[in-house]
Design a protein around this nucleic acid. Structure first.
Lengths: 338, 338
DNA sequence: CTGAAAGCGCTTACAG
DNA sequence: CTGAAAGCGCTTACAG
């Protein structure tokens, strides 16, 4: 392994001068720098980030909190994995590496903030925490630069989908197709993970604007976000009423479960009932008919989060909440009412 | 930030003694150790891995090569993401953290092996490389401990699905249902990523064992692994012949494209043609009918790969190839022939 | 059982 | 413009 001492010896300069040449810092004559850089390349020098991190206390490491408590799919999660993809691309272009934060180190328990100190992490992306986890707040309180994706957290910047207007837009689409009796099967209505609540607000706003009275008989809350929960919620809805021509689902996975429940009751999509989802999962394209849905721009969310965090790390302290619009992805699960 | 010097000062011991107590190394009286450990807890000490890594040249960092050149889904990839999930769990339990290896550092190009040196990575999981990438071989040649998942690489341990017998088992299932004219739409037949070839071998073995002649008219190679490629391959197949009652697909995503192509030609599954996939993607459960498939045990693959790498890092040098069986996942896309 | 010394590879003031 | 000194927090021989 070649070090700056080797380069110093080879060129006759001192280690600090080699360091300055390599980093482009400090005053150094252009020729000196050129000689040093050339020699470094010739000798196949690779900087040792561990040493640099120890002396500068900057690691260029970004911690990621990715737990996926609700879907238990981990990296398979259709939405968060996509956010992570684009986050990774942008953050790597910025010269940072990703490191997953966990609460254990071998057998030992540790906190996120322990892990950050342990690895000297520069900043954190809070992507997929356990909802309501107090450790997140404690981490934020340590003052380490954090950014959150798709979940608002007090005191730090957040990038999140325009859930309210997105849901409203999906409802407006159903309205344009002539639907008036529209059921809603929402995700779990938690304050700590407000997407479901926000989408329900959008549902109600659209009803109100279209002069339709809110009917709580048509609204059902699912217990989780997965397909099975959607199925069960749809069964509960159907046990009360079938007086609807369309269903607005809290997300795509729920929508799939809902579709199966309807089919088990002889109700077919889109012939008997129209169905719209939220997210734009790839899964929806595999359904027959393919699922019409409000697509979240996960790639943009991840990229924005990375940009904000990089800016934050270079001293930009302003806290901001960026809302990303959802867009209608028309496929085959909604039909116009005659 | 509290260091071992602070603990040394507080307890009256020397820094080396504190280090020994913390690491459980070297001779130290039980009482001394106890005092030191207790003080460490009281003072809220967290070890600084950067410093430790610099002095021991072990980072407890595992590099991951995850490129996904063929599906371009990144972490959304249904198979590799699942392998990564279980790998992450086991590797973290072993006291290691994950770090993604890339070929760029900010604007600078770098090799995987540069990145490993840069971060002082202890070992590498080769999960999802660009097929045929020479850099992989160069990395392996550096002697850094590597393990590969789902792709055999000379000189290092590999964990990989039993593609041949898995494919054969899927075919045998179709045979048991009475099918004799079975088409095959394989994935890209590359030597550098042999899954498709192995599954085709299984297809042929089953034919042979059942006394059926191989008919190349019934076999079509798709250009990629995604649904669109499956669609196109199915169109090519249909332009030649419709004389088959079942299709064996190279993977689940292809199967979905194949299904759409058949439907566009008025051929329905499973009524007119039975269809079996390979992988066990969640997507298959969203199809109507749900896709029958040979399920790869991704969770086991990832866990095994992590165990092997951990053993390798503790000095176990033996190179092994572990084959994991695929299992039949019966859903609704195959029907018995009367 | 315990500690003084040196070192891991780099950077940061500081002095010239 | 250039370099000698000290330090980042830890561990590893080595000596007592």
């Amino acid at each position: 392994m070649v070090t700056i001492y080797d380069i110093a010896k080879a060129t006759g300069f001192s280690p600090p001068s080699v360091s300055k040449a390599l980093n482009g810092t400090g005053g150094l004559s252009a020729e000196s720098r050129e000689i040093i850089l050339k020699t470094a390349v010739e000798m196949g020098y690779t900087p040792n980030m561990t040493a640099r991190a120890l002396s500068t206390s900057r690691s260029n490491l970004i911690g990621v909190i990715y737990e996926d408590y609700y879907m238990l799919m981990g990296f398979k999660h259709p939405l968060f994995s996509e956010i992570l993809n684009s986050f990774r691309t942008v953050i790597e272009n910025g010269g940072y590496d990703l490191l997953f934060l966990s609460r254990t180190l071998g057998e030992r328990k540790m906190t996120y903030s322990d892990h950050c100190r342990f690895r000297n992490v520069d900043g954190v992306l809070i992507l997929n925490p356990v909802p309501g986890d107090h450790e997140i707040f404690r981490l934020v309180d340590t003052g380490i630069p954090c950014v959150s994706a798709n979940e608002p957290i007090a005191g730090i910047s957040t990038v999140i989908t325009e859930n309210i207007s997105g849901a409203k837009e999906g409802m407006d689409y159903l309205m344009r197709l002539g639907h008036r009796k529209i059921a809603c099967i929402s995700g779990p209505l938690l304050k700590t993970a407000p997407a479901a609540m926000e989408r329900l607000i959008g549902y109600r706003e659209s009803l109100a604007e279209n002069g339709i009275e809110y009917d709580e008989n048509l609204v059902e809350e699912s217990r989780f976000w997965h397909a099975q929960a959607g199925y069960e919620a749809a069964v509960r809805l159907l046990s009360r009423t079938t007086g609807f021509t369309a269903i607005f689902a809290g997300n795509d996975t729920l929508a799939n479960g809902i579709k199966l429940a309807l089919e088990d009751n002889g109700i077919y999509i889109p012939h008997d009932v129209s169905l719209i989802g939220f997210d734009g999962d790839d899964n929806g394209a595999f359904m027959t008919p393919a699922l019409t849905t409000m697509r979240q721009d996960s790639a943009l969310i991840g990229a924005k989060a990375a940009e904000i965090l990089i800016r934050r790390l270079s001293g930009h302290l302003e806290v901001e909440t960026v809302r990303i619009p959802a867009t209608l992805l028309e496929r085959g699960s909604c039909r116009p009412l005659l």
